[in-house]
Amino acid sequence: MSQAELNLLIEQVKQCELCKPELAHGVKPVVQLHSTAKILIAGQAPGLAVHQSGVPFDDASGERLREWLGIDKAVFYDPKQVAILPMGFCYPGKGKSGDLPPLKQCAKTWRALLLAELDQIQLTIVIGKYAQDYHLDTAKQSLTETVKNWSDYPRSIMPLPHPSPRNNIWLAKNPWFAQQLLPELKCRVNDALKD
Rank of each mutant, 00 (worst) to 15 (best):
P92M: 00
P21H: 09
Q81V: 02
A45R: 10
P46H: 06
V82R: 08
D59L: 08
L85A: 07
A49Y: 10
C19A: 12
Q52L: 13
D99R: 04
Q12P: 04
A37F: 08
L69C: 13
V13Q: 12
E67R: 15
P21F: 05
I39P: 06
P86Q: 01
G43R: 06
P101H: 08
S97N: 10
H34W: 01
Q15C: 09
H25Q: 08
L23W: 10
L100Y: 00
G26P: 12
L85Y: 04
S35Y: 01
E22Y: 13
Q81L: 15
D59P: 10
V50Q: 15
K73C: 02
S97M: 03
S97K: 03
G26T: 12
P21R: 07
L40R: 10
D78N: 15
S61N: 07
P86K: 01
P92Y: 05
T36Q: 15
D72K: 04
G93W: 01
R64M: 00
S97A: 10
K80Y: 00
K38T: 08
T36N: 14
C16M: 05
S53D: 10
G26M: 06
G93V: 05
E63S: 10
S61E: 02
V31T: 14
E11F: 06
K94H: 05
P79S: 13
G54I: 11
E22A: 15
Q52M: 09
K14H: 14
V55R: 13
R64F: 07
R64C: 02
V75A: 14
P92T: 04
P21D: 08
L33I: 00
K14N: 14
D58A: 14
R66S: 11
V31S: 10
L18K: 11
P101A: 12
C90R: 11
K14V: 00
L65Q: 15
L85D: 05
F57E: 09
A60V: 11
W68E: 03
G62Q: 12
Q44P: 00
A83V: 00
S53P: 08
E67M: 11
S35N: 14
L23D: 06
